[in-house]
Amino acid sequence: MLEKGATAPDFELNATPDQKIKLKDFKGKNVILAFYPADWSPVCSDQMALYNEMLKYFSKYDAQIFGVSVDSVWCHLAFEENRKLHFPLLADFEPKGAVSKAYGVYDDELGESKRALFVIDKDGKIAWSYLSPIAVNPGADGILDALEELNKK
């Protein structure tokens, strides 16, 4: 897993069937990457549902959040619509898990991304990373602490 100080590997992933997100387009902004195993976990304990409620916190720190899993764009679209998510979910779908692998957070056995968080600073360097046990939603306090730390610089 990539640690603090490493350069965040660039990527280009679909957020919708016809929209691609390139990490390098977000230079000058803080970026939060939340890798997670799969769409459709129960809602009250769902990590994405929590982040959805926190978008104004993230924008206060000039940060954009992306969820990343190996689900396809169509699956992400249905999940976003069902859960009324207001931030992009990226499909690490083809080649499967390539970006998760680049960040060192792919589970070969399950064929899914691990549950991992990265905060990337405005220069594209990893400022904080965290690997959570697969069944444990890591919450958001770690992300906020990392963003706060970046703000102090």
Binding site: C44, S45, L50, N137, G139, A140, D141, L144
Partner: peptide, 13 residues
């Protein structure tokens, strides 16, 4: 209250 939850590491309800 929500803010307190976020800071305290609430991850779901």
């Amino acid at each position: 209250d929500f803010d307190s939850g976020v800071r305290s590491g609430v991850n779901g309800t």
